[in-house]
Amino acid sequence: MTAAIQVNAVEKSFGNVQIIRDLNLSVAKGERHAIIGPNGAGKSTTFNLISGHIKPTSGEIRLNGEVTSGLRPFEINRRGLSRSFQVTNVFARMTVWENVRCAVLWATGHRYAFWKNVDSLPEVKQRTAQILDDIHLSHRRDVPAGLLTYAEQRELEIGITIAGGASVIMLDEPTAGMSHAETERAVALIRRLTEGRTLVIVEHDMSVVFGLADRISVLVYGHIIASGTPEEIRGNPKVKEAYLGEEVD
């Protein structure tokens, strides 16, 4: 079976600083894959590369077998990959409802339509309402996104990411800055909403990572030093030495 995401020997330099070195990553379809690693290791850069936000200096990225390195983000999104951002990235002046609805429009085939009334598209309305319900923001539907609390914005960020129904979901530190209770709620949400899809998640909270992920990749200095099941990662001496230290045991 072709992998959902296949990264082959990707390198990325900013100027003459090499950030990503010989990156190889394979995420199987339907898998929940966590990427862990210290700050500045290149996790967000990896997300940017896979989602088309930046182009690799060399190497190749495939989505469901098709080469996507070199494509624009919207082209990759249309092929079934959707990502969230570590720093909240929503449509601040638009309401919560409009934020989610915009993320639904392309996927429901309405594209650049200027001859349809957006308020009378039943499947759009239904799907938007469903997503709002899923992310527990129905009661805030008419509030401009810029006025939401931090935790609410993080939930909206997830809502926008999953709204298009992409088969591959990438979440960059979705729980960063959340309280313990908020994190638990968000993880339950992620678990439920990505059911039956492929998930790639960057997460710092090790209990979340080991509870959620089918497989884990460890990124250190732009290179994946280990990739495997949670048990394999726990027992990997290289990982212990480079990153996890004592905290896993």
């Binding site: 989602s51 088309g52 936000h53 624009r72 983000p73 919207f74 999104n77 249309r78 959707s82 990502r83 951002f85 990235n89 929503v90 449509f91 601040a92 002046r93 638009m94 409009e98 609805r101 915009c102 993320a103 429009l105 392309w106 996927a107 650049y112 957006v118 926008i160 990411t161 709204a163 298009g164």
Partner: peptide
């Protein structure tokens, strides 16, 4: 509606298919 989204955040629009 997407015009408004482009006004608010053209970067993010690229990641919802537009």
């Amino acid at each position: 509606r997407i015009c408004n989204a482009v006004r608010d955040n053209p970067e993010r629009v690229e990641f919802i298919g537009y």
